[in-house]
Amino acid sequence: MGNDSGKQVPFKEGMMRLPQSPADKGDLLGSRCRRCGEKFFIKREICESCQGRDLEEITLGSRGKLYAFSVMYYPAPPPYKPPDPFVPYGLGWIELPGGTVLYSLLTENDPKKLKVGMEMELAFEKFGQDKDGNDVMICKFKPAGTN
């Protein structure tokens, strides 16, 4: 989980709570509309369901089930910077307990090892460093129990 040159910071505010200890799995963050109760992944200012403006931050846990997926065999266009050499990467929808389903990067890129309905858990990866030397962390989902 990154090196020790600086502290870890999330890639995007309101998207994830990074683990604070080895036992801590971290959390996805989201918003709940105080007017209609609808829940969303990632902090929102406007409720997509009722257009309400009063939303509270919630945690969405770190586990879910694979709902649908794909694997990209070619890099996405810029500003994405593919690794050299390029490695195919997985993308999919993850269904959280409670019914919120979100689009996420996957750690697994072999379609044979991915199956709709399988248990998935949150994984954090170092994406790069910011100008202060902190490790910028992104989150992906991995098949539960794998490294």
């Binding site: 996405a76 500003p79 994405y80 993308l91 709709v116």
Partner: peptide
Amino acid sequence: PWQNVLGMKASPAAFATVAQK
């Protein structure tokens, strides 16, 4: 912008996910 930087908006994968489902 954040989705693009992570390569999450590769349109072929978005359409292919529907095919997989």
